[in-house]
Design a protein around this nucleic acid. Sequence first.
RNA 1: GCCCGGAUGGCGGAACUGGUAUACGCGCACGACUUAAAAUCGUGUCUCGCAAGGGAUGUGGGUUCGAUUCCCACUCCGGGCACCA
Length: 801
Amino acid sequence: MKNYDHKKIEKKIQKEWEKKKIYSASDKSKKPKFYSLIEFPYPSGDGLHIGHPRPYTAMDIISRKRRMEGFNVLFPIGWDAFGLPTENYAIKTGKKPAVVTKKNIITFTRQIKSLGISFDWSREINTTDPAYYKWTQWIFLQFYKKGLAYKAKSYINWCPKDKIGLANEEAIGGVCERCGSATEKREKEQWMLAITKYADRLDKDLDLVDYPERVKSQQRNWIGKSEGSELEFSFCPCAKENLPNLKEGIKVFTTRADTLFGVTYVVLAPEHELISKIQSRITNWDEVEKYIKDTKKKSEMERMAEDKTKTGVELKGVKAINPANNEEVPIWIADYVLVEYGTGAVMAVPMHDKRDRDFSEKYNLPIIDRPLVDAKEITQKVGGKIVTKFKLRDWVFSRQRYWGEPIPLVNCEKCGLVPIGEKDLPVKLPEVKSYTPTDNGESPLAGISKWVNTKCPKCGGPAKRETDTMPNWAGSSWYYLRYTDPKNSKEFASKKNLKYWTPVDWYNGGMEHTTLHLLYSRFWHKFLYDLKLVPTSEPYKKRTSHGMILGEGGVKMSKSLGNVINPDDIVKTYGADTLRVYEMFIGPFEEAAQWSTESIIGSRRFIEKVWRIGEKISKKLLSHGSHSNLNVVNESNIAYAEKSSASQSPVLKLLHKTIKKVSEDIEDMRFNTAISAMMILATEMEKINFIDLEDYKKFLQILNPFAPHIAEYIWFELGEKKSINLSSWPKWDESLIKDKEVKIAVQINGKVRTEITIQMDEKEEEVKKKAFANQIVLKYIGQQEPKKIIYVKNRVINILN
RNA sequence: GCCCGGAUGGCGGAACUGGUAUACGCGCACGACUUAAAAUCGUGUCUCGCAAGGGAUGUGGGUUCGAUUCCCACUCCGGGCACCA
């Protein structure tokens, strides 16, 4: 073995893996299966971010360990390639998004491969590949057929300057991502997915899965389940005059029906549909109409900014009747009541609700303190009902964009909306000249009349295609299913493969996807489950989350700050193994970590230390054999090395402790402490003169998931013929780990004064005797009889006097 | 405002179900090897004190023989949601 040259070694080992295809998952195997998953990347033009290797390496460590533990492991990779940055790049440069994507994928592939992640590349998928998005479209049509995909007028973010509809994620904080001007809400017809139909199950079934508490609570918050009462406040006779058709009253939703006697007024959202029905009875209509108009005109930013002062207008000439006591209360409209939530109307109880109190104080409305009653009883008594409401809204599923999956339906003059037949899928994205959305906010696809004008699949008459595309969350909502059978052209995946591989056993991803991708894909999965197309009700058995990698000083890495680290440079200078070890050692996996180029050297030194020990051992093997070429160290040499270690190795105990610690720490994703333990072991191994070959090999085996190139390379150098990844994960011997003696602290009145050595599990009396024989103890206690002695087995003895 | 995290040396961070705080790594200092340098190895490195000893885990209380760990109040930092009735 020559000097450690990471470039040569890593290249060589990666070639070897590729040649032998050792990371290919088998669809039929007698081994138990293990499906580990990372969130597939968006292949951006910037190339791989230094943050990517963190979750990839983590799941790679788990996948490699599982293989060595005898599992048939599926650890796939693909590309979530539809998306805005590519489209914006196309708008700017005129380059075809498909071409740009292809180029980016080539870069990403090279970069990820250079890290030595054990992905099964034979199952690579790409959401922008028509063979893939055929099935995204197909699933969408299943939603449509079940009535869960529907068209509705919906408020979208509208940029008045760019004249374009924006997705929520493009209008964060009520500001247009492109030009920075304030956005408005505008009504537009959109495709919607009825995720709210699954709200209750998405909430409840969180009990069935192994997710971190913070993920569960964030999803629960987002779904926003709340139980309460729906009560009806009827209109007074004065409001109904000349309105014989006005039968219904004002329905309100409340979680505090017990406060019904404290109601002093009722508030409708300004957009509430009842308002127009009673328009003729409202005596101050001009004022009311102005308020409604002003509300609509207000930008999102303005509405968000004024969360302090509430505004509203009373509907004069009409009153509502409190069903509990038949008293008349005024009706107001105010924009602090949201039309989308609950019933769009609330009963105001200023005594018990801070918002109602603020409003009452501003407009001099009475605040009354009526007795509280039982919520259920009063609900029944007034003819209301107990209901459950959710904050979750249906998913706005269309985008007026080019680079997405076309929505596969047509508008027929005769038949209305007609889905494209299964055999005509996929509806492919046509080529366009310009990727800029049109002036009226339509997708660039609307400009290609050749493509838009088509025939109705039902009647053959003239029809127009839908020109909206799907959001980038569509392809990622089911990709983990495709991995089980990525080349299937008849189904999105075969039942057999789905049954064998799903659910995903362990899925790691970012916290930023908790209420988006993670929730969306759970929804899709449940829908497919209801259609009996997938065998489990939840897609992911276990979910974990990694922390971000920040720049030095704890700031986000960004081009503008100039603190972006390119993984290519690190791999080139230090090697993939060092980068992997460094990113795992940097801090607790689930927390954010600060990049420090200065500190990488520690991980590199550790890798070099491992190399030096390997060098020493191979020299020893050589000196007992006649071969000069290390690659042909033969069996007899190894046998000699083993024999000469007949007496117990001085690191045997530490080795077994380390095997245990690393085995357990990997399961808890405590990679930093696992590496720390291996560092201690390596330091000890280097110190001793003779290292047992088998001990060293075990060390290489537990190091392998972290630093697979060097582990594999030395493994072969030591005469092994099969990949270390195909070897069995070492077991630790509990009896070897147990210490015979242990040092315990001696405290006098709770303060540590000295320590004594005792036999492991020694009797309490003996320990006390030893303690009182100690000079320092005598000094403090003298001849006195201590008041109390507390002994914690094998840990501490505390003497009180 | 609400919800979820977090705060430990010069720095990143360890510490099992309450039991010797500061493992491991970076940095720094000194030493060995070397003609020299690099690399490597060794020693030291929370703080005050010559020492005995004292003080330190964001702040202030509490529980306990004993608290980084549990409880209460507060400050600051990060993330999510935000007039959700």
